Amino acid sequence: MAYNSTHEYLNIVDRLTDVYNIPNNITDSLLGYLKFVYRSELEDRYSAPMLWIGMYIALASLVCILFMVAELVHGFRSRMLWFPSKYFTINSASLTVISVAMKLPVDLSGSMPGYVDQVAKLGSMAFMCTMMANLLPCLGTMDSNELLSNLAALSIQVITLVVNVCIQMQTGAVSISTHKEDPRIIQLTSPTHISTHPNPVLPFIYVILLVFLLIVYICSSLAILKTKQMMDSKYQKGHDRASKHIQPSPGKIVTVDELEKHVRNHWVMLESSRCLHFITACFNTTSASGVICVLVTILHTYTMSGTIKAMLAKDYDSDYRWSMLVILIVQSIGVLIGTIVPLSRCFATLSFEGFFSM
C-alpha cells in the first residue's frame, strides 16, 4: 500500500539534504516528524467512510422529523389539539433511530475543529430535547411493564448522551472554556476567522435541560402508574355495578332500552380506561416539557443566526466533511417543527383547565 503524503515528505527531506546540504541534526529532526505524517495519513484513510455515516445521521434525523410531522397532521385532521402520540412513540425501533441521530454528541473521539461542526453538535442536543418533549404523552398508551422497560431504555440513552457531552467539555471537543486562541492559529485554521466555540455556555445549558426532561419523564411515569391503578379500581367497581342491571330474572326478557343502557355504560367505562393518553397530555409535566422545547428553539435559533457566515465559508473541518452541513440543516428544521406540538399541548391544557373550572 502506497502512502503518498509520507513519500512526498520523504522526498522533500531528501531534496533539502541534497540541494541545500542542511546539517544532519536538522535532517534527523525533520525525519522525526515522519511518524506524525504517517499517522495522519492513516487517520485520513480510516475516516473516509465518515462522510456516509454523516449522511446516515441526517437520514435518521429526517425519519424522526417525518414522524413528528405525521403527529402534527393527525392531530389537526382529527381535531385533537393535544396531539395524541400515534406515530412517534417510544419503542425499540424509534430508540434505535434516535440513537443514530444522536451520534454527534456521543462521539468522544471525533474532532470538531470547525465552527459548523461545533454548532451541529449543539444542534443535535437541541434536537434531542425537542424529540423528548414530543414523545412524553406516549407514556400514557403503555402498560406498566412496557412503560418501565421503555423508560429504562430512554434513561440509559439520555444518561449516556449527558455523560459523553460532559467528558467532551473536559477534553475540549465541546468546550465551555473561554480561553482565546492565538489569532494566528485562528487565521490559518478557520476560513471565517471565528472562534471555534460558538457559545461557551450552551453545552452546559443543554445538559441541564436534558437532565430536567429525564426527571420530567420519571415523574410522569410514576403519576401514570398511580393513575392506572386508580382508574382500574374505578373501572372494576363500575363494571360490577353495571352488570347487576343486565342480569335478567328467571323468565324475564331484557328490553331494548335496558340493553342500550348496558352497552352505553360499558362504552363509557371503556373510553374512560383509554383516556389516560389524554390525561398524560394534560399533565403539568407535559406543559413543562413544552416550555423547555420553546426555550431550546430560542437558543438554537440564536446560535444559528451567527452560523450563516461560517456555513457560506464552508467552515466544517471534521471527518464528516460537508455532511455536517446537511446534519445541521436537517436537525435545525426538526427543532423548529418539533416545537409546534409541545407548544400546542400547552395551550390545549390551559384551554381544558379553563373549561373544567367553569
Rank of each mutant, 00 (worst) to 15 (best):
L136P: 01
P198S: 04
L299C: 14
F67E: 05
L139G: 02
Q157P: 04
C282L: 15
K228W: 09
A120D: 01
K314G: 03
C64E: 08
L325F: 05
G290R: 07
R45N: 07
Q331E: 10
E43H: 14
L95D: 04
L51K: 14
H179W: 07
C138E: 04
Q118I: 08
H262Y: 13
L312V: 13
A152C: 09
K261H: 10
I292D: 03
T189H: 09
L139Y: 07
T89G: 00
F204T: 12
F356S: 12
V158M: 07
L151D: 00
T96D: 10
F127Y: 08
D182E: 12
K252C: 08
L81H: 09
D240P: 05
V162M: 02
L161Q: 05
A313T: 05
K180G: 00
T6Q: 11
I185L: 14
V296I: 14
S233D: 07
L136K: 03
Y302G: 09
T141L: 05
V216Q: 03
C219Y: 09
M128A: 08
Y217V: 07
G123C: 07
I185R: 13
G54F: 04
T303N: 15
H245G: 15
N164S: 15
S61D: 06
A93M: 15
S287W: 02
S61V: 11
D14A: 13
A70Q: 11
A152H: 14
F352G: 00
K35V: 08
T285V: 09
V69W: 04
P49D: 05
T303C: 15
L30T: 01
S351M: 12
G114L: 01
L259R: 15
F283T: 03
L135S: 03
M128T: 02
A60M: 04
D143L: 13
I22K: 03
T171I: 08
